[in-house]
Design a protein around this nucleic acid. Structure first.
Lengths: 332, 332
DNA sequence: GTGAAAGCGCTAACAC
DNA sequence: GTGTTAGCGCTTTCAC
């Protein structure tokens, strides 16, 4: 913004021969003002090119009509999808979206949360790395919605990957795998813990030996280290924390001369951009990420008192489904 | 934000036995206040947990310390990279980044620009779809920086893809290709026009027959249509507007039983996420996108009068380089 | 060097 | 219904 911009509410008021407050009402509470004058005001306001100043509006009302989305890594397609879902829904509701990237650091996460809380009306935070205590404390004094993380009674949108993990394990079991490795992601990640827990349970039930390898960086680059560990471990199939890690692992495995799925079957999580055109095409547990972003904003708007959703359940679980492609097959 | 939050400047002033204006100065213009009192003020402010209110600060100053980045598609990895570069640099300079997705629509672009101009101090817009006239008019009354688009004297960061196109054409010529097709992107795109122009020139010089196919959607999905056209056209090599289109084209070509690069060589632009692990790995013209995002913010900050860069050239061209992988080879 | 006071553009009681 | 009058929290002359 720049000083001395367009006309203010006062200029419009003067032009219409009414008080500034009437102009304000004409816009904010039409109905509390004579229909005819309201129309006349809007008319001249439009002619004068009057545009309400969001900042000035925010000061007394305490609401900026801005929402923030905090993610650990914008370049990760998983989060790009989330950003899109959130941005779309926010824009549709008349909100502006502020984006913050924590680059996987809990400290940056705190800093951003702190700064943003004075600027926006509410925050959606994707796969937070902060401890439960901090999250709870923050949510206590500020509208907050978590995505892909459960923490006390803080409202959240979770993707039921743990549930899907069972399906994934069954898929591998049916192909004949008896020794499966889980390539874990960030230790601070709630998603990682819950996935591993689900996998352990499924393994026991299906008679599969489950081992947990890692942690590895949840990126394509992280797959290099993961692949080495896989070779040593000797599992006939691996389930990666996410698709990026799975893709990176495949690349390295292939480079080391192993066949996929012949020697090792690889299964990812999320079905992000790239999972279908990598080589071999990745079998993965598809997550409705964009939808998660959208619903998170929806939940937040509900908390802010905009939607009928007010007071409804504050934990939404989204189903996943297994997409079988070419990276999994019978062992040997 | 929420009403009745923490302590205000007045509370701090009272606690220190000074005037509110002194507290204000202690933060905004230290030096214009006694060093000792300034220290005492900051001390107690910290103790009381005082946090300056950005909104209140923005009203009189007219500066919100927010910047906006407007892109046509956040889920496109090309723009995710740009977002990251911009976000990082903005955050480092103490600015908050607002993100807007136009979803390839010029109308939405206008709407966003309009809305944002009242909220942020400056705007970076990636590969705008708006006509030059609109862009110029807007830039005239508001700090604006273009990325990947040149328009009159509006400050911009351009990636020298046209220059790189020559290199790409030479690469194909040296492999023996004599008939090359350009798979074009959005017609409203400046990048598309300049790439095609460079290609025509290079084609003439190298004795290559260049044909322009399309336009196609600059996405993986857009590649399906492109591939069909390529088959009909009969070119031995294609250069796609971007990597996504190239990847989509390869998928479809492969599905139709053609060999790459045997039957058709495919060359992309940008070297985005996925270009290295798609199949076959894509030969592409690498663009320093993240850097472009960073520099765009830098240029904008310069315009806002923050950096020494003030008054320096307002058009920065970034070099590209060809990354040869497996999707190009000798024809036949 | 510091205090008092007048806004920034808009909203929200509270009168009339 | 509409005008008047305070602010929202901070910055910024302008005195002293």
């Amino acid at each position: 913004m720049r000083k001395a911009e367009g006309p203010t509410i006062i200029d419009v008021a003067r032009a219409c021969g009414v008080a500034a407050s009437t102009v304000s009402r004409a816009f904010s509470h039409p109905g509390r003002v004579n229909a005819a004058t309201a129309e006349r005001i809007k008319q001249t306001a439009a002619e004068m090119g009057y545009r309400p100043n969001p900042i000035a509006k925010a000061l007394p009302s305490g609401r900026t009509l801005m929402l923030a989305l905090v993610v650990p890594d914008v370049t990760n397609p998983f989060f790009s999808e989330m950003v899109r879902g959130a941005e779309r829904h926010a824009a549709a509701a008349g909100y502006t979206l502020v984006l913050a990237d924590t680059e996987e650091s809990p400290e940056t996460e705190t800093t951003h949360l702190d700064r943003l809380s004075h600027i926006v009306d509410g925050i959606v935070i994707g796969t937070p790395r902060l401890p439960d205590a901090n999250l709870a404390a923050f949510a206590d004094r500020f509208p907050l919605v978590l995505v892909n993380r459960e923490s006390g009674s803080v409202p959240c949108i979770v993707i039921d990957t743990p549930g899907g993990m069972i399906q994934a394990a069954e898929h591998l079991a049916s192909l004949g795998h008896r020794k499966v490795a889980y390539l874990s992601g960030p230790r601070a990640s709630w998603a990682d813990r819950s996935r591993w827990r689900a996998l352990q349970t499924a393994g026991r039930r299906l008679g599969i030996t489950m081992t947990r390898l890692g942690p590895f960086a949840p990126t394509v680059a992280g797959g290099t280290a993961a692949a080495e560990t896989v070779v040593v471990d000797g599992a006939s199939a691996v389930i990666a924390f996410n698709d990026l890690l799975a893709i990176g692992t495949m690349r390295r495995l292939l480079a080391r001369g192993l066949r996929i799925p012949g020697d090792v079957s690889v299964l990812g999580c999320d079905d992000v951009f790239g999972a279908d055109f990598c080589h071999p095409a990745l079998t993965t547990l598809a997550a409705p990420v964009q939808n998660a972003g959208r619903l998170a904003v929806d939940l937040l708007l509900g908390i802010l008192g905009h939607t009928a959703a007010r007071g409804s359940r504050s934990r939404v679980a989204l189903p996943t489904h297994l997409v079988v492609r070419d990276s999994t097959g019978v062992p040997g």
